[in-house]
């Protein structure tokens, strides 16, 4: 006679476990479906890294390129000093090769405050940026990082901070 009571209980257990399993699976799938890695965000970071890396390390941008004499008969050789900014190049502005079509804001300031220079793609590097330009840059919702660099100016290395922002 005991089985008449146990059989419905077993059925309830099976039904209950099945319901819980299905509900859990459904909720799990719904939760996993919510995970979304922003493709736009990913590309933006790679773009930022590659652009700043080129600015700091490439002689086509701001990196210092020095020439030195090889032993007699071997001529001269050039060496790129990655991470060292050539003040002359920076003062000349951001070239098209360097910016690769992007709108870039670069701010170089020495730690002792003697050097300060702001650049914006498409603006005359010899003219200070206008207030409207600076206000516009402030509104860029973009990644912003500081790099510790050395600036080569008048045969001297000057510690400085390079700040780069790229318009998205």
């Amino acid at each position: 006679m005991a089985t008449s009571v146990e059989q419905p209980q077993t059925l309830i257990y099976v039904l209950g476990v099945t319901v819980i399993f299905l509900a859990s699976a459904l909720i799990g799938i719904m939760y996993l479906a919510q995970i979304d890695i922003s493709q736009e965000y990913t590309l933006y970071n790679i773009q930022y890294s590659s652009t700043v890396s080129r600015m700091v390390n490439s002689p086509t941008c701001f990196a210092l390129e020095e020439s030195f004499e090889l032993p007699e008969g071997y001529g001269t050789e050039t060496q790129v000093q990655a991470g060292i900014i050539d003040w002359w190049k920076f003062n000349s502005g951001i070239t098209k090769v360097c910016s690769d079509g992007r709108i870039i804001y670069a701010y170089l300031s020495s730690l002792d405050g003697t050097l300060q220079k702001q650049l914006l793609t498409g603006r005359d590097p010899l003219t200070a940026l206008s207030d409207s330009d600076l206000e516009s840059i402030d509104n860029w919702n973009t990644k912003q990082e500081k790099y510790y660099v050395l600036v080569y100016k008048d045969s001297q290395l000057i510690p400085a901070i390079l700040e780069v922002r790229i318009k998205g």
Partner: peptide, 19 residues
Amino acid sequence: SVGDNEICNVNLLNLIRSP
């Protein structure tokens, strides 16, 4: 971390060769 590593390397390299 790609960009972070770039920052780390540039900063450290320039740190030890700072005058």
